[in-house]
Amino acid sequence: MTALVLIETEQGTVRQASRSAISAASRFGDVDVILFGDNAENAAKLANVRKVLHVTNLPHLLAEPAAALLATLAENYTHIVSAVSANSKNILPRLAGLLDVQPLTDVIEIKNDDTFVRPIYAGNALATVQSSDRIKVLTVRGSSFDPVAAEGGNAPVETLGAPGGYDKSHFVKVEFSHSDRPELEVARVIISGGKGVKDAGNFQKLLEPIADKLNAAIGASRAAVDAGFAPNEMQVGQTGKVVAPELYIAVGLSGALQHLAGIKDSRVIVAINIDPDAPIFKVADYGIVGDLFDILPALEKAL
């Protein structure tokens, strides 16, 4: 059994979720990794990696040529794995289509080489499924697996070219919202605001100082994003980012079903809400009923 893991980097560093995917794939046997764009130096240092395949001519990771290249490599492997990300969700199911296999997405537990657990119905149920496909194509949730070490390995790097000439899809541009804060998926602490925060200015004024003190990521409920208080990449929940921090502080958000599905694996949940009947209190380890406009400044002082 040999697995190929599609890894991603951020400013040259291999993403933690990708390191988690390597550790998940290690259960199947040897692991090769494939990296598109960037430089392969850090990938070569990863623990548990047999070989790095470095694709230099596809920096923007368009799904069509990326999946086509992966399909040419796939028959050498029993499992093709990636951490859940916008790119892997785009590419791996297309690869599965090319290979005529049924992909498994969002896997949270690996039972054995062919049996996997994945959430369905926004995490309201867990399905254990056994795949009969010759090649298993899966995305795994980074927060469900411990990452391999970023250093210590010394894998050889092989350079590959993606097939050229694909002209039906073109990258135009990407606009990132820059931030010095940790990513939501890997942050140890997250503070999230809901509609109760009332406007974008309050997100800055009330949530940011606390996030600064705790080195926390800032999240938002779907209602807050839809109301324009926060950009959509901050959305936490089944339809946004699924998170599992040590500490999740929910501020002025009631706890809609799909939001709770996205935070339920947090170790400790704190809820601050003026409505004592808000569903968020049913899942929170600690709650304070009260006005967030009084509580947040007090919390900032107390930290």
């Binding site: 499924v129 795949s131 949940i269 380890d285 600690y286 304070i288």
Partner: peptide, 21 residues
């Protein structure tokens, strides 16, 4: 089907904690 459903189960429920003053 390529996938056999072994079983479908409820996820572990979180319990409500304490309200602090």
């Amino acid at each position: 089907p390529r996938l056999k459903v072994v079983n479908v189960s409820e996820p572990p429920e979180r319990q409500a904690g304490v309200i602090v003053e």
